[in-house]
Structure formats: C-alpha cells, structure tokens
Amino acid sequence: MQKTYYDPSDLKKFGKISDWNEELGSKFFEYYNSVFKEGALSEREKSLIALAVAHTIQCPYCIDAYTGDGLQRGITKEEMMEALHVAGAIRGGASLVHGVQMMNKVNKLEM
C-alpha cells in the first residue's frame, strides 16, 4: 500500500473507474467530455473555470490537469492567477458574508 493518499500517476488511471461500473463510468465520461466542448462558453473559458473550481475543491489531480490544459491552450500564468483569485474571493466572501448572521445574532442578544 502506498504511503501517501495522493499519487500523481493515479491521474493517468482515472479512466479505470469504469472497470467496476461500466455503465455509470461511461455515462460520466461522456457527460464530462460534453461539458468541456465549445458552447455558449469557449473551451478556453471552461478551462479557466475548471482551474478555479479545482482550487476551490482542492483536488490535486484537477489542479495538475487544468494547469497543463491551460498551458496547452496558451493561457498565461497571469490569467490563471486571476482565475484563482476569483475562487479565493468567493471562498473568502462566503466566510465573511456569514458575518451578517453573526452581527444579527450579536445585535439580538446584546442589550
């Protein structure tokens, strides 16, 4: 058994999840591939969204995959970092916006 929870080479084996449930695995990958095709949003925009989400959910496989994907598409490191700040802003904002709840509670309880 490996000594760490994550192994970068496991990313290459992602497709193997279908081995234990062919039907659902295939449906998932078909859906996944459809999602990233050009639509109302470009493939480039979707790649940046994926990179930001990857950091939000802190998935090391996804970070590896969408950093590489971005480089292949000619996305610059400045664009990548800006996308991450969007993720950071929403995460930070999500904590801070609950401050209103805290303030409501304090205002209710304090004399």
Partner: peptide
C-alpha cells in the same frame, strides 16, 4: 507540454 488545438490557438 503539448500544443493545444491549432485552430483555437490561431484564433487567439
């Protein structure tokens, strides 16, 4: 890393 899609890169 490998090059991305040629047509998309050309557009950019």
């Amino acid at each position: 890393f490998l090059p991305g899609n040629q047509a998309a890169l050309e557009k950019d």
